[in-house]
Design a protein around this nucleic acid. Structure first.
Lengths: 216, 216
DNA sequence: AAAATACTAGGTTGTTTACCGTAGATTTAA
DNA sequence: TTAAATCTACGGTAAACAACCTAGTATTTT
């Protein structure tokens, strides 16, 4: 029973190239070559597909949206991206969505075969260029999350203590009891904190706390 | 002319396993199996080697020091690591030193062959687990050490959507506007979410969202 | 000594959230 | 075809929070 592959790419030449890679092997069977994400979804709805190889840039429905839909609606169809993009944010996003593989189109044919087989066997596959892309830019991507706001410096140690308790889910009254101060005092601190970091509700306050490592 | 491979690993069984992988192929030739970094260097000084496959944990001289020496002194010997470590810091360090590949020992034999060939052809190779390891460093600090709650599974996709907006600091009214539903409906979702994950204020709700990667 | 900062506490007012219930419409599963 | 789940929406009440305000005490800085 060959591995059933769907290829989605709006460049016919590339799609054919990928198709040829698989057609010389009896382990694989290309069951569809489509031009966009919508067509891919339509096909998957009607037929059995093991692996969907999706390009990102496609008309009507792009590969990202298509991947999302497939992963949500067709649990047993594995999704791998085959793209020219190597922006870490895109790659990261896709991996979080749940794609099993991400390959750049520079991947050699034989590696693509291995990759496809790995993915079919419930493993994951990312080719070297992807790893390098993540690595080379990971400082910036990393900082996007880890970078501390300079506003943290504005907070006094008492305020950081308060924000910690707030982010742990305690109410002003509970915090007051813990710190042996009036809940009104806690409220004052809370107000001051929010003014300093320029947020206007608990949700944003806690978001700030998490992003700045103030959560204990 | 086969690709000349040196294997350095202090576990004889593993070293033999790797050796066997290559010996069934005439493209490759294992010219040495050594037990530590020092022996590897000694061998390379006397013989021609195309690729050195190094373990990290070895007595006398470890794989990291060995890799450094090889890369500095023997420009035409390519170095790849084959290890059980997947700490991003180690991997990053080695890539900065200049190793051409990093594979975990969980790599399938056939993938190892492809990898070795790629590296011989002046490409780089990192297997999927390595990418994942790097990626985990890439994502936010918060989910790193905290385990995800099974309660996430209880949430419907709509509820996850709501929780995402809440954690972004939007009020029920704002969320209602975004999703074209009544703020009362948002409130109902909110109530249901809080019941499901057993929290009783926004703070805890957002804490939950952050710890479970529901913050977009 | 005066000014600034931090911590404390309270007043007031309006908004938002938390929790309780009910309930129709639609989709999904048994 | 019931049954269950999901998404939708509303009423009401109490608690918590958000945004203003003043103000005393203590400590540090200028």
């Amino acid at each position: 029973m060959p591995i059933k592959i769907l290829i989605a790419d709006d460049h016919p030449l590339i799609a054919e190239g990928i198709k040829n890679t698989f057609e010389n092997q009896q382990e694989y069977q290309v069951v569809a070559v489509v031009n966009n994400g919508k067509e891919a979804l339509d096909f998957i709805e009607q037929h059995l597909v093991d692996i969907a190889l999706l390009d990102i840039d496609m008309p009507i429905m792009d590969g990202i949206e298509c991947a999302k839909q497939i992963i949500v609606n067709y649990n047993d169809v594995k999704v791998a991206m085959l793209s020219m993009h190597q922006e870490p944010s895109i790659i990261k996003n896709l991996i979080e969505i749940g794609v099993k593989g991400y390959m750049l189109k520079t991947i050699p044919s034989e590696e693509l075969l291995i990759a496809t087989k790995s993915i079919y066997n419930d493993k994951e596959y990312f080719n070297a260029d992807v790893t390098k892309a993540l690595l080379s830019n990971n400082t910036s991507t990393f900082h996007q999350y880890k970078q501390k706001s300079p506003l943290v410096e504005e907070l006094t140690s008492r305020e950081k203590e308060i924000i910690k308790y707030i982010s742990q889910g305690f109410t002003n009254i509970q915090i007051g009891e813990k710190l042996f101060i009036s809940p009104r005092t806690v409220d004052t601190h809370r107000t001051n904190i929010m003014r300093k970091i320029d947020v206007h509700n608990v949700a944003s306050l806690i978001r700030f706390a998490f992003q700045n490592g103030l959560t204990s």
